[in-house]
Write a protein that binds this DNA or RNA. Structure first.
Lengths: 334, 334
DNA sequence: GAGTATATCGAAAAGGTTTTCGACGGAGCT
DNA sequence: AGCTCCGTCGAAAACCTTTTCGATATACTC
């Protein structure tokens, strides 16, 4: 800690360099008319004094703070973090600093953070959700642009980015049929999640395209390994002919391969298993490593930041929800 | 997006209320001499106009921004996030907003972010690392207080908070011997990590206290499930009498129980297994669920924020590294 | 030498808020 | 009536930077 040196101001360097603050400012910003001699002198003094312009004053003057807010509803979750990282990255290269706010799923806390962000005069806000269900907008007539990531706004006038779950499921079953599988079962999570329903939608569509029936009924329950194990046991007894299971998440997929091994079925030789989410620690550590669907969350976050920057630049972007495509990550389980 | 309403200023509400900006300010801040009548009138006007004070101007004036920076070296990692969440939480209740910066382990990027934070006039900085090895300090003679979390600064004059890995390992083997285990083996990760070495330190200490030898040598390699499986197979062939394995991480522990099952050993009846980290998704989804050591990262983050707030308040805190104790989470694998 | 063009610099305003201090009016007292 | 005192309010400075525009000096042209 030690020094606690007083911050050095532009006036300090101006005095030290024997010029006015005006020319000092122009010298440091390569702007206006200033001789190269004094410019050098000023920059030299600024460096030795360790001058760093006070962004608060700058922002106040130019009416733009070069900050954005990220408002997340649940940082703990699996999906917010990659988006957060991508957004922070994209903003950082654009010389924007980001305020992080975690509302913990609390509506009241969210409004509290919103007020804080607005009084700090952020130039824009990205709200990232943890579920794919649509959410009410942050507010109406906000003084700054807002883009919604992962969880879309239910107001069609807002701009939202979401992952394409039906497209992802299509990719998944196409991959399985391309591997020669004909008896594909689907074990997934909570029937109350639109993510689960979107994926069965895509699956049915791709199955129909391939002229194949689903092996058994789709099995809903919870997003856990345990459910993957349970469901697989049941599946094997009722449909021993199954040669592929499409799991609704990597967690479930882990349970599936466990149960398959316990039943003496080889993966992928006897039955292939496909995960969803590309949760690295689960997918890569599995034995065999899981083929899975990657959500492209980094791309989603990057694009969200990109749209926000455009809006901050004054461009009006056309409203609606944009779907960013998923992609299959091929590993050893298929 | 829609409105883009112009931000309403204090002058606006003052004019509307028929007073000067000075009295308006005093009315809204419950300060100075102002009659209750005009106070009510001003607050009323402020509410209807939706006035929110410009924090930039406020900060500039009072010389304190009510913001802190979090500088992380690797957000991806397993350990930064819980700390980040706890810090954000603690700061939020203190009416501080937090700037998030992810340096991605790049020294240059870190300095870049540091400069940005300082020119934004943050009141303090928390730097959270992703490894337990000590790191060089952010800088010398910085104008704001800094506290280091998880990865300590190697300058003894700084204040750092780290997890107590040797204490955690002591708890782990005590737990195992309290379960009646006498042949305890240790499978852990990369020998180059001080975390790994600290834990064998604590383990040896607790083993000595209990008068027990280690079963076999400690097995170093990588922090993965695969290594857990490999090492277990080797262990079983060389030391079939083993009745407990203390794993250096939950990932390794998962591999251990897999291999144990494959070898026909029941967990925990035949051999107990203990994890480390309490990585929920791994530990709770395991079959059986893992008993493990929790790092208390939330507490660490909360305390880091607490110390920083004290320093910001002008208290000088005594330098050095503080160890926050771990705790055992008992589940079904022991 | 007179006049004009050019190069370089500085004074001042602006941004929105808080705080100090002086002004003003009315009430109470002698 | 004259005085003090208190309660309320407003003018202005301060925080630090950027930008505009006028001022000054130098060089150049005829």
């Amino acid at each position: 800690m030690a020094g606690m040196a007083k911050a050095v101001t532009l006036l300090d360097v101006a005095k030290r360099a024997g010029v006015s603050v005006a020319t000092a400012s122009k010298a440091l910003n390569n702007r206006g008319d200033v001789s190269s001699a004094t410019r050098e002198r000023v920059t030299e003094v600024a460096k030795t004094l360790g001058f760093a312009p006070n962004e608060l004053a700058r922002s106040l003057l130019v009416g733009r703070s070069s900050t954005v807010g990220i408002l997340t509803s649940d940082l703990d979750g699996r999906f917010a973090l990659p988006i957060l990282i991508a957004v922070e990255d994209a903003c950082g290269t654009g010389e924007l600093s980001v305020f992080l706010c975690d509302a913990r799923g609390d509506e009241e806390s969210e409004q509290h953070h919103l007020r804080a962000l607005l009084s700090r005069r952020v130039d824009g806000i990205i709200v990232v959700g943890s579920r794919t269900e649509a959410r009410p907008p942050l507010g109406h007539n906000l003084p700054v642009p807002v883009v919604y990531a992962y969880a879309p706004s239910d107001d069609p006038n807002d701009v939202s980015l979401v992952t394409d779950n039906v497209g992802g499921a299509v990719l998944a079953v196409r991959h399985l049929v391309s591997r020669g599988r004909r008896h594909i079962a689907h074990i997934t999570g909570d029937r109350g999640y639109v993510a689960a329903n979107d994926r069965v939608l895509g699956m049915n569509q791709a199955l129909a395209d391939a002229g194949l029936p689903l092996c058994g009924d789709v099995m809903f329950s919870e997003w856990s390994e345990r459910w993957g194990r349970e469901a697989t046991a049941k599946l094997l007894s009722e449909h021993p002919e199954v040669d592929a299971v499409f799991a609704g998440s990597d967690q479930i997929a882990r349970g599936v391969v466990d149960a398959l091994h316990a039943a003496g079925r080889a993966v992928p030789e006897d039955v292939a298993v496909m995960g969803y989410d590309n949760w690295e620690v689960l997918a890569t550590n599995s034995d065999p490593a899981l083929t899975t669907i990657d959500l492209n969350l980094e791309l989603l976050g990057r694009e969200a930041a990109g749209y926000l920057l455009q809006a901050i630049d004054g461009q009006t972007l056309l409203p609606g929800v944009r779907h960013v495509p998923a992609r299959v990550i091929t590993r050893e389980s298929t």
